[in-house]
């Protein structure tokens, strides 16, 4: 199939950037979206042009590296997948496809479609961990009884791959779904109890310091999340934060 691509091109973080049109012909419906971009880049390199920079790594939907706002939706039109799992059969011959970087003040554009998502790393560093003494006496986690519901919910929260689609989808560029998943996975497990209050306080403080917006409960984040992280996690984060402040 033949497609018209409207791709955000930006030389570096200080460049203004603009949408540039590209025509691509003979795209196979069996290609993944990233393979289609690979083909485009090969053509650009052959012509001596600068290839389009975009993030990717595992191409199996688990690393959280790929991104892209495709026709206004993070990871494109399909539900519960990442861009690397999106196939060109989801598009029609002759379609125009807008490809933009995830937009947020906290995710500055590095080049073209690549954004710096290290704000998520800094939020994690602020409290998204448990302190375990690994001197050789560490207790086997499987030996600690955990309520099945809590274990399931913690696991669901832990499936977050930190791709940033929630931020990209939210009209406020809020990171609440990401932070709520990271807080929830520990809040629900025995190992997370010791640092529970500090974790919620510090991760929320870092989230605000990075410049993400506030949650207005539109639900756009959860709908676009490739791992379908639930909004109940955001309510839990609200509880965890308020508990840390009022209890």
């Amino acid at each position: 199939m033949d497609l018209k691509l409207k791709i955000w091109r930006q030389k570096n973080s200080s460049d203004q950037g603009q949408i540039v049109d590209y025509d691509i012909k003979g795209v196979s419906p069996d290609m993944s979206f990233l393979e289609m971009l690979d083909v485009l880049n090969t053509e650009l390199i052959e012509k001596g042009d600068d290839p389009v920079a975009f993030d990717h790594d595992c191409r199996e939907g688990i690393c959280g590296m790929c991104s892209l706002q495709i026709n206004g939706k993070p990871h494109g039109p399909d539900a519960a997948i990442t861009t690397c799992q999106l196939h060109m059969r989801k598009f029609n011959d002759g379609d125009t496809i807008y490809i933009e970087p995830f937009r947020s003040r906290a995710f500055p554009v590095v080049k073209d479609l690549v954004v710096d998502r290290s704000a998520f790393d800094r939020i994690q560093h602020a409290g998204g961990y448990i302190s375990v003494n690994t001197s050789g006496n560490t207790q086997d986690a499987n030996a600690i009884p955990v309520n099945k519901d809590n274990a399931d919910h913690a696991f669901d929260a832990a499936t977050c791959i930190g791709c940033g689609a929630c931020v990209a989808a939210c009209k406020n560029a809020s990171a609440m779904l990401f932070v709520s998943a990271k807080v929830s996975q520990y809040a629900l497990l025995p190992q997370g109890q010791v640092e529970r209050k500090k974790r919620a306080e510090q991760m929320v403080a870092q989230m605000d310091a990075e410049g993400f917006g506030a949650c207005t409960n539109t639900g756009a984040c959860s709908a676009e999340c490739p791992k379908e992280i639930s909004l109940t996690n955001i309510a839990r984060l609200n509880r965890e934060f308020l508990n840390s402040k009022f209890n």
């Binding site: 906290a106 009209k171 406020n172 917006g213």
Partner: peptide, 11 residues
């Protein structure tokens, strides 16, 4: 919240 996304999406 508006300030959290200074560059808007084209689509």
């Amino acid at each position: 919240n508006k300030a959290a996304r200074p560059v808007k999406y084209a689509k």
